[in-house]
Simulated assay, not measured.
Amino acid sequence: MPYPKGHKMKVRNKIVESAAKAFRTNGIHDVSVPFIMKGAGLTHGGFYSHFDNKEQLVAEACRYAISDTIALLQEAADQDKQNPKINTVIDYYLSPYHRDQTEMGCILPALSGEISRSSEEVRQVFTHELERMIAFISNLADIDASKGSALLSTMVGSLVLARSVNDPKLSNSLLSAGKQYAKELVMN
C-alpha cells in the first residue's frame, strides 16, 4: 500500500525539526545522523532517501531554525501591546528562558563558531539566514541594516556569553547588560 500524498515531505520536515533541535543544543559536529533520525522517531537507514549528506541537512536546519525564531519573536512582539515591539523582542531574546531553552532557541549563537569551519554550501545558507534575521530586527526597530547588524550582534553576543559561564549571577548580569545596551542602541 503506497504512502499518502505528502508523506515524504512530512517525514523530511520531522528530520529537519529534529536536526534543528539537536544542533541548537549540541552543535553540528557532536550530533550524528542516527541521533537526529532517532529524535525524529525514524531509523537512520532512511536518511539518504531525504538528504544527500549531513551538510545538506545542516543547511535545511538553519533555514528552518531562523524561520522558527523569527516567528517566535514576531509572536512575542505582537502579544505585547504596551511596549515597542523591538523592546519586547530584546527582552525575550535576552531572557533567562531563552538562554536556558537551547533546543528551541535561536540557532545563531548555537552554531556561529562552527559555521566558519563548515562547507561553502552551509556558510552560504547561514549567511543568507543571518541577513534575513538582520532584516527582521532592522524592520522591527525601524533602523538601517548597519544598526540592525550591531543590534543583533549585541543580542547574540550577550546570549553566547550568558550561556557560556557557570555563575548564574554573572549570566543574568550579562543578559541585563545586553538588554540595556541593545535598547540604548535602538534609541540613538
Rank of each mutant, 00 (worst) to 15 (best):
S32Q: 08
V186C: 11
L42P: 06
I15W: 00
L185I: 13
P2D: 08
D80S: 01
Q101A: 12
Q74A: 10
R63E: 13
Q82N: 14
R163I: 00
D30N: 15
G27F: 14
Y64L: 02
S173E: 13
K21H: 11
Y97H: 14
D80R: 07
R99L: 12
N172L: 12
I107Y: 01
S49A: 11
S18K: 12
V186Q: 09
R163G: 01
M133V: 01
T154P: 03
S67Y: 08
E17P: 00
G39R: 01
H98C: 12
P4T: 01
D142R: 13
T102C: 04
I15A: 06
K14C: 00
C62M: 11
D91P: 01
G157A: 10
H44L: 02
K85D: 02
I137T: 14
T127R: 14
G148D: 04
L42D: 07
M37T: 10
D91W: 03
L94F: 06
K81Q: 13
Q79R: 14
M1F: 08
Q180H: 15
A162T: 06
R123M: 15
S112R: 15
N83G: 00
H7L: 09
N26W: 06
A61R: 07
Y92E: 10
L72P: 00
D68I: 00
N188K: 12
E120H: 10
K5S: 13
N188M: 13
L174Y: 09
E114Y: 05
V33W: 09
M187H: 11
L185F: 10
A182G: 05
K183I: 03
V89C: 01
P168Q: 12
I36A: 02
K81V: 15
S112D: 07
S173T: 12
A177T: 14
F35G: 07
A145S: 13
L130Y: 14
T88K: 02
S176T: 11
E114H: 03
T88F: 01
K147S: 05
G39V: 04
S149N: 13
D100T: 04
C62D: 06
T154I: 01
V186N: 04
S176R: 12
N188I: 14
L130T: 14
F35W: 06
A177Y: 08
V160R: 15
I28C: 00
G113A: 08
L42F: 06
M104S: 13
Y64C: 01
Q56M: 11
K81N: 09
E131D: 14
V31K: 11
A22T: 10
D100C: 07
T102S: 13
Y3L: 11
I107S: 06
D68A: 08
A110M: 10
V186Y: 06
S49Y: 13
I70D: 04
E129V: 05
C106I: 01
N87Y: 14
Y48C: 02
A71M: 06
I86L: 00
R123T: 05
E17L: 10
I107D: 03
Q101M: 14
R12Y: 02
D167F: 04
R123L: 07
G41D: 07
A61W: 05
Y64H: 10
E103R: 01
K10T: 04
G105D: 05
A145Y: 07
R24A: 03
E103S: 10
H98M: 15
H50Q: 08
D144Q: 04
G6F: 04
M37K: 03
V160I: 15
A77Y: 03
S118H: 09
S32H: 07
G41R: 09
E131P: 00
K21W: 03
D91H: 06
E184W: 05
I107P: 01
S95P: 11
V16R: 03
S112P: 01
